[in-house]
């Protein structure tokens, strides 16, 4: 079974994939635990991203204040 990559799952989730590929991906997810795990990881990463954005934003404010 060919698995989907992290980037592909991300694209699938964000509806960037062509319709049929996305459909295939979603079907694949129904029966592939490994890809479901990867998708779950991706969702956890979203939380990490929020944290990183916060840090990045604060860092920019800090830089502005230093200037």
């Amino acid at each position: 079974m060919n698995h989907f990559s992290y980037a592909e799952l991300d694209m699938c989730r964000n509806k960037i994939m062509p319709f049929w590929k996305r459909f295939l991906c979603r079907c694949h997810l129904q029966r592939c635990a490994a890809c479901r795990d990867l998708l779950e990881q991706l969702e956890q990463d979203e939380k990490l991203i929020v944290q990183i954005r916060e840090i990045h934003c604060r860092e920019n404010i800090r830089k502005d204040q230093d200037q």
Partner: peptide, 28 residues
């Protein structure tokens, strides 16, 4: 927006997602 980033950097949308995935993995 991903499309805007892809256009700006002259890479494909797929490449933008791959870059994101690579950086997140490295970051972790």
């Amino acid at each position: 927006p991903v499309q805007e980033v892809a256009d700006f950097l002259q890479i494909s949308v797929q490449n933008v997602y791959e870059a994101k995935s690579r950086c997140i993995a490295q970051l972790r």
